[in-house]
Design a protein around this nucleic acid. Sequence first.
DNA 1: ATAAAAAGTGTAAGAGCTTTCAAGTCAGAA
DNA 2: TTCTGACTTGAAAGCTCTTACACTTTTTAT
Lengths: 357, 357
Amino acid sequence: MTIYDISEKAGVSIATVSRVLNGSSNVSDKTRRKVLDVIEQYGYTPNAFARGLGLNTMKTIGIMCADSSDLYLAKAVYHIETRLQTNGYDSILSCTGYDPEQKAYSMNLLLSKKVDAIILVGSNFIYDNRDDNQYVMDAAAQVPVMLLNASLNVPNVYSVLTDDHHSMYEATKYLIGTGIQDILYFYNSNSYSGKRKLSGFCDAMEELDRLTGIKGHGLIQFYGGPHEDIPHMAHTLSVLRDRGLSFHGIIAADDALALGAVKYGKEKGLRIPEDLSIIGYNNSMLANCCDPELTSIDNGLEMMCNQLINTLMNVLGGRETPQEFLFRGQLIQRGTTRPIPWDASQPIPGDASQSIP
Amino acid sequence: MTIYDISEKAGVSIATVSRVLNGSSNVSDKTRRKVLDVIEQYGYTPNAFARGLGLNTMKTIGIMCADSSDLYLAKAVYHIETRLQTNGYDSILSCTGYDPEQKAYSMNLLLSKKVDAIILVGSNFIYDNRDDNQYVMDAAAQVPVMLLNASLNVPNVYSVLTDDHHSMYEATKYLIGTGIQDILYFYNSNSYSGKRKLSGFCDAMEELDRLTGIKGHGLIQFYGGPHEDIPHMAHTLSVLRDRGLSFHGIIAADDALALGAVKYGKEKGLRIPEDLSIIGYNNSMLANCCDPELTSIDNGLEMMCNQLINTLMNVLGGRETPQEFLFRGQLIQRGTTRPIPWDASQPIPGDASQSIP
DNA sequence: ATAAAAAGTGTAAGAGCTTTCAAGTCAGAA
DNA sequence: TTCTGACTTGAAAGCTCTTACACTTTTTAT
């Protein structure tokens, strides 16, 4: 069933059928109705390839994501996919893993499929070394590139992200405000946003060092073990402690790591939050799975995804739009941290609980 | 840059270029090298639309999934996507939600994009009423349809699933074997596999009723609240208990529900597993997030996904293959259940711990 | 050496759609 | 009535590739 069949049955030319199909206004109502009837009757759907050939677009967006089974990334992909769909776009998903070469390869694959844009979900697509981002720039030369949780100042690249530095800075100050000074930062990624988070933590700790005149309140521990392996995370911390390091607070770069920290605390018989306070990141469902429930930073993922798609639609529609959207995260206080005492004289100037509602 | 440009620069015909591109053997080494060089030099990539038009395929598989942010479904999609990629296929992902109409619509959208096959991830795509599955049969008339976690006996539809009935039956018998008789089944879906699970539970409980001569050991509770809302799940159970129902074991239809059960137990001050034993389903990362760690049923998701892709490749390659693959789940015993006592005389014949290693 | 088979290459006909441009229709104005 | 211009419509070219078929060249068998 092709456009020719339809044109024949409707007694018009293929051009007219095509015009009806594309909602062109240059068709009389009578003709339009006639064609529509025939199309309906035979259940005809235009061939997407042929259409793509003619239009050089298929209303399809390429989504790249290192690991779509990751709780956070999966949520992001889901929201993006859903919003795309309501805007009449399809998406081709490509799980690239964390290997840079694979990323570049996947990118080319998507481009060869003539996607209208590419969305990079997650901060691990942008590297510090500008040369390593060449593949992104190459892509941007062909189609708009959208970044979620990362930023790259290059034409035709648009970014939607949270201010991870600020979030971590405030979270750290909040924890200090509850009376804890020896804090461990527990992280597992050096990605674009990973770096920002770490520096936020460091800045807050340095401030503390400066104010107290004591050096080294902050500890930093990288977790390189298997993804999502909570027991292994707990074990990593256990080893640390056994080496004699002491800390009464843990700030984790994501909720899974925080759960590892909670598990560690329980295994060591520490009361949470009295003996050990813990803050997670992302405010995922894991925060509720935790006992006690996990204090975590919510960065409004859904809102960011909406902004990203809106921006994309603007770009695709040829409308002007800012290149970068920066959101602010929000600390959700739950059971793994103590509240800031009402009367406490803050060791750090500035009331953290004010800027983090 | 088209095939014409390449053919000109290489001094051959477009047919030869095309043959080189498609790895046809009817090209001399010398010619091939020459063409390849030119292609390399100009960084040419064939236009996917034109290719699709000619071949009527784009090496693309449609994946449908109700909610790709669901922990379990996301894992499945990830494995499928990854395996597809290693087989040289792309995937178009469509998140349909749970609305039947939306499913049919998405299906047509995928078909219009000329996918080579459609994979339905999750059991909620198949309904009890055969008429409701018409959209699947319609699709199967055009391309192979693969079902993960569901089954439909229709030509050109292939199924890969676990024997949920058996898993639940054995899990229930196991729990009974640990000495618990009043068991609550906690579930949230009436999907294809949801039904199977429920009937597995019911069968085991009826057996118990028959053996003890007492009716009504089993309780069943549906959870209709928001997805992944652990506190809400706990609350649902709390309400039940407050109405005077008593149970010392909970079997949940998935791990999230089981965490809800754990939370409920803790809130009520029950010791787990002494006062309340809990079994989850899917053996997801949540099982490790739990304290104590959750006993759960592992149904080998990755293996199933592999089988599904292998089968698909066979179908696409025109090779014979069975229509249905049925796997057996496996109970992973952890901290939310007691071990079966060595010397206990089983109230139910058949040693559950034997068939569930 | 020669016939027959095999291998390599090119021509041209699609695949199904969009879109330009020319032509046809028809109302209202002159 | 004739002309003008606004609408409609159709013919045909174009988008980029694949592939059947025909033709040429090379290899193999005799």
